[in-house]
């Protein structure tokens, strides 16, 4: 799309777009090409010689039980975090939308965790859930008799990183759901109320369906967040442990590439992640484009 009324110049538009193209080419396209090339090669330990090995890195990757385990862990982590963050965010937003008084205050009190870095969020929850000092861990032990130990038990560690990651994302989802609900015409709700629909029925029959584009968008953003931005949480809280129980894909790329210096495998893992995120984006755009008209 372009304006009808435009400026004419031979060189100016190129100058204006140049910085963007330069940065994109240098830090996006070139590394992507390099990564793709690297993923098809095997370098010797000293990095002097590269041998072209076709898809060997990928075959090795998908036959590696550790990688397959990491995929499973990422799925569990990602879906649980998204589920917790979305359901909690939706619930709070519904309540905030019903509130008549103090709306700005309520919103203020609920959006600030968005500004907390994932790594810092991980740190706070590490303290709260620490098996020897954490107040929640101690409460669990004393009141419910739960033997909580994320340092040794994988499932506990997983719950800990899920909570630490979801906490911050709740406020992000809250903002979107609240805005989505406020965009729904009041007349629809009122008409349903006059017809005798209860508040619960109105929520499930009107608000929720009309919110579905927002819900879908938020879902995609949450998945992307849990796949990539949660690196800080994992690095701070568990470092992938215990025994690889929280070693999600992005952390594995970092570990294999930077700590283990297995360049071919790390590049192949990056390519897998890139493919994944590109397909998510494509699906999102297709779906959102269809949904826009529906949302009016």
């Amino acid at each position: 799309m372009i304006k009808r009324s435009i400026f004419r110049s031979k060189t100016l538009p190129y100058f204006l777009i140049l910085p963007q193209i330069l940065v994109t080419a240098t830090f996006f396209y070139w590394p992507a090409v390099q990564g793709l090339a690297q993923s098809l090669m095997r370098s010797d330990p000293f990095g002097h010689r590269n041998t072209f090995v076709w898809l060997d890195n990928f075959i090795a990757l998908f036959t590696d039980p550790l990688y397959l385990k990491s995929i499973g862990i990422t799925l569990i982590f990602s879906l649980s975090t998204a589920f917790v963050a979305i359901s909690f965010g939706l619930f709070i937003a519904t309540m905030a939308n019903r509130a008549l008084k103090a709306k700005p205050l309520i919103r203020t009190m609920l959006i600030w965790p968005y500004a907390v870095a994932p790594a810092v969020s991980g740190m706070l929850w590490l303290f709260l859930l620490h098996p020897s000092y954490g107040v929640i861990a101690i409460a669990l032990k004393n009141w419910f008799g739960v033997d909580w130990n994320p340092v040794l038990r994988g499932s506990d560690a997983m719950i800990m990183v899920i909570i630490a990651s979801a906490w911050r994302e709740v406020s992000y989802n809250f903002i979107f759901f609240l805005a989505g609900m406020q965009a729904i015409p009041k007349s629809l709700i009122e008409a349903a109320a006059i017809d005798g629909a209860s508040p619960f029925k109105r929520f499930w029959k009107i608000t929720f369906p009309l919110l579905s584009p927002t819900l879908f968008f938020v879902m995609v953003m949450n998945i992307i967040y849990t796949f990539f931005d949660t690196f800080g949480v994992i690095h701070t809280v568990t470092q992938g442990g215990p025994g690889g129980a929280t070693n999600i894909l992005i952390y594995k790329v970092y570990q294999d590439g930077f700590i283990g210096l297995n360049l071919g495998s790390s590049a192949a893992q990056s390519i897998v992640l890139m493919t994944l995120i590109i397909s998510i984006t494509v699906v999102q755009f297709k779906y959102v484009e269809r949904k826009v008209q529906y949302a009016g």
């Binding site: 070139w30 590394p31 990539f228 790390s266």
Partner: peptide
């Protein structure tokens, strides 16, 4: 061409291409 080239990088966080970007 410029628009499509820029648009393609939408949503591709630096995390997925860390190693080559680091080399760069």
């Amino acid at each position: 061409v410029a628009f499509v080239a820029v648009f393609c990088t939408l949503m591709l966080p630096v995390e997925v291409r860390i190693l080559p970007t680091y080399e760069m």
